[in-house]
Simulated scan of single mutants.
Amino acid sequence: MSMRHKKFIERNERYDIVQWKFKGIPITFRFWKNGSQIAEIKVDENFAKANGYESVEDMAEKTIGQAKFNEMFGGVPEWIRTDAEGNFIFVGMNPMLFN
Rank of each mutant, 00 (worst) to 15 (best):
G24S: 07
N46L: 04
R14I: 13
N70G: 15
G52P: 07
M3R: 15
I80Y: 06
A67T: 13
I9C: 00
Q19H: 03
I17N: 12
F22P: 09
M1Y: 05
Q66V: 11
D16V: 05
I38D: 12
T28H: 02
P26R: 02
W20D: 11
T63Y: 06
I27F: 06
S36R: 14
I25C: 00
N46Q: 06
E40F: 10
R14P: 09
T63F: 02
K21L: 08
M3P: 10
E13N: 05
L97K: 08
K23T: 08
N34F: 01
E45Y: 01
P26S: 02
N12S: 10
N94L: 06
Q19G: 00
N94V: 06
G86N: 14
Q19R: 01
A84E: 10
E45K: 08
G35T: 12
K7P: 12
G65V: 01
Y53L: 02
T28A: 05
A84G: 11
A39F: 09
H5V: 10
G52S: 04
V43G: 05
V76H: 08
Y53Q: 07
K68W: 04
A67P: 12
I64R: 03
L97A: 09
F29P: 04
W32A: 12
S55P: 05
E13I: 04
E57F: 04
D58K: 06
E40R: 15
R4D: 15
W32P: 09
T63Q: 06
I89D: 09
V76W: 09
N99G: 08
D16L: 05
N87V: 00
I17D: 12
M72Y: 14
M72P: 07
N99K: 13
Y15V: 12
M3T: 11
S36A: 15
N46C: 02
K23E: 12
Q37M: 07
A39S: 13
I41H: 02
H5M: 12
E40I: 11
G35M: 10
H5T: 15
E10L: 10
K6S: 12
M96V: 14
R81T: 01
E78P: 03
T63I: 03
S55G: 01
A67K: 15
F88K: 11
K68N: 05
I89H: 10
I41D: 02
M93F: 00
I41F: 02
K42A: 09
A48R: 08
A67W: 11
M72S: 10
G24H: 08
N34M: 09
N87C: 02
F69I: 09
Y15H: 14
G92H: 09
R14G: 08
E54A: 13
E57R: 02
V43A: 11
G65S: 04
P77W: 03
I89C: 10
F47V: 03
A50N: 01
V43H: 07
R4T: 11
M72G: 13
R4M: 15
D83K: 04
R14L: 14
M96L: 14
E10Q: 14
E57D: 00
A50K: 00
K7N: 14
E61L: 13
R14T: 11
N34R: 07
K49T: 14
R4N: 14
N87F: 02
M93G: 02
M93E: 03
A50F: 00
M96Q: 14
M1C: 04
